[in-house]
Structures are given as structure tokens and as C-alpha cells.
Design a protein around this nucleic acid. Sequence first.
RNA 1: CGGGAUGUAGUUCAGUUGGUAGAAUGCUUGGUUUGGGACCAAGAGGUCGCUCGUUCGAGUCGAGUCAUCCCGACCA
Length: 491
Amino acid sequence: MAKDITTRSENYSQWYNDLVKKADLAENSAVRGCMVIKPYGYAIWEKMQATLDKMFKETGHTNAYFPLFIPKSFLSREAEHVEGFAKECAVITHYRLKKSPDGNGVVVDPEAKLEEELIVRPTSETIIWDTYKNWIQSYRDLPILCNQWANVVRWEMRTRLFLRTAEFLWQEGHTAHATKEEAEAEAKKMLEVYADFVENFMAIPVIKGVKSPNERFAGAIDTYCIEALMQDGKALQAGTSHFLGQNFAKAFNVQFLNKENQLDYVWATSWGVSTRLIGALIMTHSDDNGLVLPPNLAPIQVVVIPIFKNEEQLNLIREKIEPFVKQLKEKGISVKVDDDDSKRSGWKFNEYELKGVPVRVVVGPRDLENNQAEIARRDTMTKETVPFDTLAGTIENLLAEIQKNIFEKARAFRDSNIRTADSWDELVDILDNKGGFVAAHWDGTVETEEAIKEKIKATIRCIPLNNKLEDGKCVLTGKPSKQRVLFARAY
RNA sequence: CGGGAUGUAGUUCAGUUGGUAGAAUGCUUGGUUUGGGACCAAGAGGUCGCUCGUUCGAGUCGAGUCAUCCCGACCA
């Protein structure tokens, strides 16, 4: 459990990469910058999807699907938006191949050039607003509360498994409202949904805040975000919710007649979280034995490992474990009984620890005699023996306790890594030697924000919601400031 | 697109002044094992990224080329 930020951060990239591969979550693909999510990793994503989807439905949203391809002209309608994404777009120029003249393989057919190039969506605001235009005429058509589960492509120069890949999976919500107040409330509500999900299901503590102008989504009026802290002291943006104002409605000419019979532009929000959250999960909870999964998201919550020398013994154990495995399943707990005799039990212990399975139950001849089982918890790596008849109940409680414990552990770590700096030297010293978030005064200008980023590679992660106001001086310029903002080096 | 490095067995990597292609791990088979990543034996597995050059002879030296990784810039 290397908790020392400075020692761990040196090899953190390597450690992270190895873990993703060893735990069987994902691997690099033949296509540069793209990732293969393996079954175990995808199972985690499916659990995240199911939970989020339920939360979206409970807040009145429905799912829809929009095209993968966006006409180039759509992207350029909103000036800031195009500038924000232009440098990382995959562009489709042709629609057909033909046999190579030299007989080897195929070449792009020059005659099949598209009149207008298509962009593989880096995000769907433009295609969706072009569609919404046809859906909205009256205030009675509003609000529209749609979510889409999709893949998007952002052609990044440097990629890392889960954290930044050329293609990634996400959900993007796009809502249309009759009033500014309603749209702002929606953006804030979805931020709360994200914070609830990330903290209570993923056990990752987050800071809710609003982005500074420089970090804002391209085309947004306000970007609300949740920021998490990784074990190497770097921050990670875990989710964003944007209040888009009327920018996209104006760009795509989406107007409606309001109750006063006046033509008005629609107010918009968009919000999204991605497979990047799996990266956050790994970097928040894992230790030197491998992954640590919060019980709420673990594809396998309990693994049962029988220890046996022959078929006869295994049958006795099977008979004994059957009742509590059934009880656990009835409680909705996912259980895997691993009685594969081609792997030794010691090997299995390590394997399931590496994969982060929260609870392990071991039953061998010794336990049959004493009518008990050994249970081991992944978060603390401790073991205890429990009588068979109380096993199911004990495990149910233990899963809840593990969920709580890893969240509290992560929160304690995060809280102990939020520091205040009152001078430039102090800010630099903390970032270089300790990492974490640094609360410091900033004069509120984009120039200063950029200058700080340029000098020390740290960005303003957010201005926390409910930030308390206090007078101070900007750490860089010395100009007056009304509140502290959170700086960090980030992924 | 700048700076650096690396391409050898499925994987991770050795390979000396140029002279028969190596290890670990994984895989297959058989046996002994099985309460914290077992052991023994046998076996399969290679166009040394590609091209050209130097040489009697190139994994090794030279030139070119392609690819990948790392550090920047960009970013969820």
C-alpha cells in the first residue's frame, strides 16, 4: 500500500498500465490510440451503465440515439465549439474502396469523394441540435430530456488506457428548455446525480465545482464539474454538466413560441461521463495487490473457493456451500464458485485479489469439521472465520461495510491533500513536493490562469460550489481576489 | 509536429571485438502436488520490423524506411 505520493508517482504510469492489463480490464488494440475493453472491464462498465441509466430515468430522462457522423458544416456553426474540437477530429472523405491497380489489396477510390466531409462525432451537440430544431415549435414541446449511450472519437496525440483513448464510450445527455432558470437547474441537478453516483457507487469522493473560463467546455456558458484526486496526487475530472445558454439554439436556429406568444431561442444543457471513470476507479482504490473494487460495482462481489483433494471432498463442500450461495443470490449478491481443479488455491487467492473481488470465502476440509468458513475482505486484507448458518448475513453486512470503508479511506486521503497556499512559492512547493489540491487566490482573469498553467503545468480544477468568500491577493499577480480556487496538476 | 528511446519465441527481455538463436514466463503432454501465485520430466513455439549496403560470414556494423513507446504541445 504505497501511500506516499512522491514515491509512487515516479512509477505511477507504469504501475497503472500493468494493473489494467494484469487485472484483465483492457489492452491496447492494433489501432493506434484505441483500446480493447476486455470482458471483465466491460462488466464493470455495464454495471455503471445500468446504475446511471436508472438514475437518469428516475430524473425524467429517456434514451435516444443520434448518428455517428456529423456533416463538417454543422461543427462550424458554433464558433467556440469548432475551435475546441477541430484539432482532434477524424474526418471521412471517401465512401468506397477499389482494387489496387498493382493488384495488391485495396486503395481509396478517388471517384468516391464525398461532396461534404463527415466528421466522426467528438461529441453530439451539433447533430442533436440540428435534429431538435425539427422537434420544437412550441413551449409545449419542451423540455426535451434525452440521453444517448454512444462512442465518440477524439484524435488525441497521446493516449492512456481508459483515461484518454482515441475512441471512448460514454453517455451524453442533451436537454432543451423554455427558460434559462430551468436549464440552469437541470445542469446543476445532473451534476448532483453524477456526484451521487461517483461517491455512492464508485466510492470516489469528489469536489463539486464550476470551471474557470479557460477550462470551460467549448460552447458552454458554465461548466459544472466533479473533480477527484488520484493516489499519485493528480486530479482527475470525473464528470461535467454544461449550461449551454442559447448558444446552440442560436447556431442551429432552434426557436419556439412561448406562453406569451413570442418567439424565443431554446435554452440548453449537456452532460456526460465516460469510461474514463474506470480509470478513476483504478487510481483511487487500488493497492499493491491489485484492483480494489467497491462492492456496488464489482461484477463478482463474492468468490467462493473450495479447497479439496478429490471429487468426493468437493461434493461434500458443494453440499455445504449450496445453501448460503443460494441465500446470497436471493439477496441479489453476485457469487462465483471457483472449483476449477486446474488452478491451485493459492493461485486463485492472488488472482481474485488482483481483480479486486471484495469478499472471498474459503471452504476446505478443516472448515467442514468446524462447520465454518473463512472470509477475507479485499480492502483491508483481513480474514475471519464465520459459522455457516450466519455466513450470508455476515457477508451482506460486510459488503456494505467495505463500500463505506473504501470511500472513507479515499476521502481521508483526499482531505489530507487539500492545502492552502498564500504565495507563489508556497503554491509551487506544494505542487512539486506534495501534490493534491491547492486552494489559492486568483485574480479571476484568463491571462493569469494561462500564465500559471504555462509556468507550473497546474490548472484551476474548479471553483467549488458553496465556496466561502474571503478577501486575498492573487498568488501570481497580487491583484485583489474574493475567493480561493482549487489548483492541481491533472490527468 | 518537436526531443529521446526501442523493435529478437504468445509475453517480458538477454545476446560480449561480426562466427550453430538464448533465458524467464506462458502453452501442450505425463506424473507428484493442492489452506497464499507448486515441483519433476518431455515437447511445441523464430523470415531477429522491413529494404539496401559492407563482409567469406550480419541479430550484431552503415544507410534508408516502417512501426511502437516515453517526454512535450493538445485533451474527458
